[in-house]
Structure formats: structure tokens, C-alpha cells
Design a protein around this nucleic acid. Structure first.
Lengths: 350, 350
DNA sequence: TTGTATGCGTTATCAT
DNA sequence: ATGATAACGCATACAA
């Protein structure tokens, strides 16, 4: 009931509470053995624990960073996105882990609208915001500028350089898909489908689609628009794409599919396996992200691995650096194709 | 850069800043049209947004609740648990969602040791703590009592009534397993294995194990200790149990397995399918929780469904109720066996 | 209906 | 080396 504050410590130690504060923050260069000992004793005796809220207020720093999940097509709540797409789960968990090291809290939100988002950021006085959609970043930033609130926050998104991103931690999206497609091509596949989310609204998908096109081009394969399968990036979306693949496999002899997300591949697995198809015998499949589910699937999914933990950590680091006056260094992380058992050489007879 | 505070609003509206505060909190019963309008105008003009940190401090309430993940065997960090066991992910997401409605923040931690845990709780002045392990709850509570800090927090765990839990939101663990086992028995299975985590340290596992025993007993089946497969509750643990099952299927003609967690079932799937076995032809499998992965698996997993979203929401409600002076009502939620395709009638010839 | 004074727990400035 | 005073932004008795 009774909270123990620095004033209690001061009383117990017979000093001013300011001295206690100084001591706790190792401010005044030196303290007499005397007082240091007595303060220490008092702290232990009374069991003093600093109050984070008070500290935040006094330090004028929130020690809190925010994660803004992208505007999901189907689900409004961040909770659902977190549940439905493991990528965000893993990313969020990794952010949490890193933030913990800086004694920084993490709050999340989803697509709540520009106004609400701005309010959200300001009400927490966030040290930084991590977001996945550059348009959201842009509007947030502008919103701040308009109100004279130069958000001293660091935006980290999936985009490359742009005026409304203070820093970014991206991955080589294009290369990832190119690696996947090229690998399939080198395995003899010629009719390779592409499973993706909408690439008009999502620059990430656009980049990956571009990778698909580039890889085909450099292999002298022409792009067949029927092979570009667009749906929501979710398990259900994957299932639906699977249905369309079934048709393409039969009618157009498609022998492989490159997915922009593991969860999409999972949905495709479901449809195909239920239809009695075999992977990779009937269709080679590649994913993207290398989430936990990639290994869970049977056969394990060949996928483009990105280091989510590292990526999340770097995002948090950026925000921390900004507060330490260090320059922010944006990076583009490499990705790597992880060969597993969902892909096989093309066999004409099937 | 320049924060807008109620004082700015007051200056702009030509009132005392206290009046603004009153107005914002709808305290003073009525305000003159005059001032109300001017305050409103000022707020809109300056774009005032309340500072949560200051509010927390002044209100003497943290508007923050904590989730304490259980001491995981393998992983120290909460991040890993969140990643490795989807149950916690889904639960956490649901807690987040509900807390959002109360404008309450959520912080997480894992097994950091009693001392650190207590410090963690106090430093945030948590409104309530949700934990999964009753021993942890007990030690936390005692720790508080010793220091005269009667933690005015609500502990919600997986346990039933106990002196160190202010409230609990449990599920009918025993019934869940009984339903699963009974269903298998009624399908003709007689040699049913049980895949679980350690049931000496985890009361939840103990309860489920008890359900297994009860169901066998009421079916006049004797318990074969070889059929009780214990390992870490994770995908990897499941894989290892799968290896042992392979042997039991061959040597002891085990025809079904009941798992205490979906993730365990996932691991078993992996081992069996890679060994060329078919589910449910060669082995019927049931899970527990009905996580997203249950539907992802092929064939979809028959499992004991618990309403994680509701459960999480009730936990948050408990904490909120405590602060509203309402009595805390603990509940035991029902569970339900969801029949899918991972189970089939026992066939002697196989 | 509105305002004064005080407090929440901590940090920061500037003396001493 | 230590301390008095103010500040962080807001809320709440109590007065007026």
C-alpha cells in the first residue's frame, strides 16, 4: 500500500532526497563513503524501487516505442494481425526483446486512421515509431509538421530512402525473389507462378513482383499474366490461390510457385494436399520470411530467409541511437534462399 | 518540439488550467457555454493531446498490466516463448486487444527470477499481473507482503482457488482431456498414448494427465506407463515424442495419442509424416488449444478448443473490475472437442 | 461554475 | 560533496 520513494530513503539515510536521486543516477562525481553506505543501507532496508512513470515524466523521455502494424485488408485489430500473420508476431517479439535491453517499453497499434494514430503517438510521447507502411509514415510525419510538432521520432519502414523516413532497415526484397525464381529456373522449371498480395498498394509486394519479372527476363522466360496470383496475404488467401493453382497446373502445366510470404505457401499446401497433390512432385513451392511455420510444414518449405530478429533489433537500435545523438545508419539486410524439401527439379513426366 | 499542455489551453482560453483539467475529466458538473466553447476551441486550435505519463502519475494508477510468461524450460527470453509457442502469442494478442479498450498498456516478461520479477511489477506499479504459474504468483505475493507492499494487484493464473490468487480464469482442463480420450475410446482405440510436458512442475499438465487417467479408468482400460510420453512442450519436443511413438506403434500397437498442446501434435505430425506414416490411418492424434496451427496442419487437427480470446479478455476484465471496486468473479471456462480429420476409428488391420 | 493550493515520484539547475 | 528550489504534466480536495 505504502509506496517507498526516494524521500523515504532520504529520511532513513538522513540526507536530502535530492542527494539520493543524485546517488542513484551517479550524478555528483563522488559521495562520501558515509552517505553512500547509508543510502545503500536505506535502499536495501526499505526495498526501494524506482517508479518508471515518474522517471519518464521527469526525464522528459517516454522510454517507449511504438510499432504500427500495416493496414491489414481483412482485420482491423492489431491482435488479429498478430495472430493471423506470424511474421508480425515474430517481429514484435524480437522488438520486445531488444527494447527490454534498453529498458524501453513497446506499444502496438494497427490501422486506426491518421488522426488516431497521431494522437496515439503523441499521448505516449513515443521515442520512436516503427512502421511498415510508408504512406502511413508520411501522413504521420506531415500531421506532426502541420501542428508544429516536429516529431523527433525515427520512422523505420520497409521502404528505402524517402523524405519522411528518418531511417530504415530494409531487406533485399528483389534479390530474395530473384534467388528463388532463378533457383527454380535452374532446376528446369519454366512455368513458374507468383503468389502475392496486392502490389499496387504494397511497395514490398511491388518490389518482390519486380524481382519475379527480372528473374524471368534474365532467364529469357516471358511473363504470363495468368500466373500472377493475387490475394490477401494470409492462410486463407493462400488457400484460394491454391485453388487457382490447381487449375493452372492442369491447364497451363505450371510446375512451381514462388510466394511472397510463408503463410501464403501454407495455404497453398493445404489446398494442394487436400486435393491429393504431392509436394514437390506435383508442384515446387517457395516461401518468403522463413517463419517457424516453414519448418512445421511437411515437407519443410524452401524459403527466402530474412533475419527478423536482427532486423527488429536494428530498428530499436536506430531509435536508441537517435536519443544518444548518434547518427542513424540505415541498412539493407541481405536475404538468403534456404533450400528445403518443397522444391524439386522439373520433371517432364509427372 | 513544443509540447501543448493544459496550461497552453488555459492561456488560449483565458481560464485557469485547472478548469481545463476539470472540463477534460467532466468533473465540475457544469460549465458555462462560454468557457466550454472556448476550451474546446483552444484544444482544437492548439491540437492538445493528453500526456499519458503525466496522467498516470497524477492519477496514482499505472493503467498498465503485466503478463508473466511461465518459466520455459528451454528459452529464457519471453520473446522466444512468444515465438515458439503460439498459445502465448494468441493469448498475449488477445490481452492486448482487450486492454486497448480500457486504454491500458500491457508489458510482458518471462522467468527473470523472483527478485527481478517483483522489481518489475513495482517499477511499473502494475494494476494487475496475469501469470501462468501459481508458484510464481505465490512467491510474488509473499515477496510483496514481506515488504509491507500489499500488492493491490490481481493475480490470474491457470490454477483454481488458492490463497495467493485474487482471481482466476481457468478452463476445464480435466474435462478437455477426458473428452478427447473418451472420443478415441468410443472410436475403438484401446492403446492410447499421452503426450505431455512435465506434470510434476506444471499443475496444468498434472490436471490434464489426471483427465487421461480418469478417462482410461472409466473405460476400464489400464494405464500403461510406457504410453506416457513426457518432453518439453514445443515443436521440437513433439518431434522427439514422435520418435518414441513410432516405436510404440510398432511394438505396442499404440493407435492414438492425446496431446496436451497443439504444438506438440505439430511436432508429432512432422516425425510421423517424414517416416512415411499416414494420419489418421496409422495414428489418430488429438491436440489441445485449437491454435491457428491446428487448421494449418494436414490433416487438420482434432483438438480440444479453448476460447483464448475470451479467456484473455476475462483476465483483463478482472483487473479492471478490481479498480472499479467491483467484486472479482473467477470463472472456469468450458472447453469443447473439435472433431477434424486427424482422428479415425480404430481399425485392427493396418 | 471556477480557481487555489497541493501532490504524484523523479530529475535538473544552480548554489553552497 | 550536498542540498534548496523548480520543473515534468496532470489531477483532486477544498474554497470561493
Amino acid at each position: 500500500m505504502k509506496r517507498v520513494t526516494i524521500k523515504d530513503i532520504a529520511r532513513e539515510a538522513g540526507t536530502s532526497y535530492v542527494t539520493v536521486s543524485h546517488y542513484l543516477n551517479k550524478r555528483g562525481e563522488k559521495f562520501s563513503e558515509e552517505t553512500a553506505a547509508r543510502i545503500e543501507a536505506a535502499i536495501r532496508k526499505l526495498g526501494y524501487i524506482p517508479n518508471r512513470t515518474a522517471r519518464k515524466l521527469a526525464r522528459n523521455r517516454s522510454y517507449t516505442l511504438g510499432v504500427v502494424l500495416p493496414p491489414a485488408m481483412a482485420s482491423l485489430s492489431p491482435a488479429r494481425l498478430l495472430r493471423d500473420n506470424p511474421f508480425y508476431t515474430e517481429f514484435f517479439a524480437a522488438v520486445q526483446a531488444r527494447a527490454w535491453e534498453y529498458e524501453t517499453d513497446v506499444v502496438v497499434t494497427g490501422d486506426v486512421g491518421d488522426e488516431a494514430l497521431f494522437t496515439w503517438v503523441m499521448s505516449y510521447q513515443l521515442d520512436g515509431v516503427i512502421l511498415f507502411a510508408s504512406e502511413v509514415a508520411q501522413r504521420l510525419k506531415e500531421n506532426g509538421k502541420q501542428r508544429g510538432q516536429h516529431l523527433n521520432t525515427i520512422f523505420v519502414g520497409l521502404e528505402g530512402p524517402s523524405p519522411f523516413l528518418d531511417a530504415w532497415v530494409t531487406i533485399d526484397e528483389v534479390s530474395g525473389i530473384v534467388q528463388a525464381v532463378s533457383y527454380l529456373v535452374s532446376s528446369g522449371h519454366k512455368r513458374i507462378a507468383f503468389a502475392t498480395g496486392d502490389y499496387h498498394t504494397s511497395p514490398v509486394n511491388a518490389a518482390r513482383f519486380s524481382g519475379y519479372q527480372q528473374a524471368l527476363a534474365s532467364a529469357n522466360l516471358s511473363l504470363d499474366e495468368r500466373f500472377v496470383l493475387v490475394d490477401e496475404v494470409s492462410f486463407e488467401g493462400g488457400r484460394r490461390i491454391g485453388e487457382r493453382l490447381l487449375v493452372l497446373m492442369k491447364n497451363a502445366r505450371v510446375s512451381a510457385v514462388v510466394c511472397v510470404a510463408d503463410i501464403l505457401a501454407a495455404g497453398i499446401y493445404k489446398t494442394l494436399l487436400r486435393a491429393g497433390k504431392r509436394i514437390p512432385r506435383d508442384l515446387s513451392i517457395t516461401g518468403f520470411d522463413d517463419l517457424g511455420i516453414a519448418s512445421l510444414l511437411e515437407p519443410e518449405l524452401t524459403t527466402v530467409r530474412q533475419d527478423i530478429v536482427r532486423r527488429a533489433a536494428l530498428c530499436v537500435d536506430c531509435i536508441e541511437h537517435a536519443y544518444q545523438g548518434k547518427p542513424l545508419s540505415s541498412v539493407c539486410l541481405p536475404v538468403e534462399l534456404v533450400l528445403r524439401r518443397s522444391t524439386a527439379p522439373y520433371r517432364y513426366t509427372r
